[in-house]
Design a protein around this nucleic acid. Structure first.
Lengths: 147, 147
DNA sequence: TCCGGAATGTTGAATTTTCAACTGTTGAAG
DNA sequence: CTTCAACAGTTGAAAATTCAACATTCCGGA
């Protein structure tokens, strides 16, 4: 009898809430790490995705970087202004625009990757590599099953 | 030898990325459910926290609802305009403002709770109650250990 | 008592995101 | 061939968020 009969369950037991809370916290940690290079988390995701040298359409990139379409357009505008990426009209389908990472962007990614890996290492240490692997696996299947 | 030696690990293996992705997905699902009542997820969180009848200071509420301070101020402005909550200056510390849920707000929460529980039920079914419990536990400890 | 620093919220400007509407392109049906 | 619906991306206005600066109140020490 730990609760009175009418005690409603708090929102803190909802998966949606816990995910939002954890995401907020981890995102903040990453944000402060990336602040060294003055790069927002969204731009880090975009750059990392593009860093393999392949171009991506806006649609694919939006999906990969977890951004809405118009938001991505404007973020890419800013990144083009900073010479981090560039647009090329897709020769095969002229509705599409391919985004590529510039040399400057690639150099930035090389400085960013260690910062992100630092976070992973930090989490592994303070949270446990086992728990982390388990959590990642559960998140992946959650995304697969509902996304 | 599944990867070439120089293959960089994709961003999709980072915990920060997986959390962002899962959060985005689950949040969207919740959003569409709450759309029935036209309530943004952030307001749902605020209302649910306040629905026990106790007042909260802006600071406590911001923490509980996962919002920054100025964002909360303006969100509460909107909710006051909609008569969902009201402000009362804290008698014990006049720097503080206590936020309470109005009757209208409470009635709304009663319609919202089933929508949120529906999501939990849906997830339990399509993802597994076991996996869900495990995921919740892992998220809680992650938050404890890093937050 | 009075001062000054810390805590609590709010505000206004600037930035960012979102929504809906729009342009241009493709592909398939007739 | 045309035509037209669907697709890809952008745009401009509106809404929301963030940042920095600003009150106001509290509290501890001179």
């Amino acid at each position: 009898m730990s609760d009175s009969p009418s005690a409603a369950s708090p929102i803190t037991v909802h998966l949606a809430y816990l995910l939002a809370q954890a995401n907020r916290e981890i995102n903040r940690q990453l944000e402060t790490r990336l602040r060294t290079e003055g790069v927002p988390v969204e731009q880090w995701r975009i750059l990392k995705v593009l860093s393999d040298g392949n171009g991506r359409s806006m649609g694919d990139l939006a999906e990969a970087a977890l951004l809405n379409h118009p938001t991505l357009t404007k973020t890419i505008d800013r990144m083009v202004a900073n010479s981090l990426v560039y647009r090329i009209s897709d020769p095969g389908d002229r509705r599409k625009v391919l985004i590529f990472c510039s040399d400057r962007g690639k150099a930035l990614v090389r400085r960013l990757v260690p910062l992100a890996l630092d976070q992973e290492a930090f989490l592994s240490e303070n949270y446990g590599g086992k728990a982390m692997a388990q959590l990642k696996r559960l998140l992946e299947t959650l995304i697969d099953r509902t996304g």
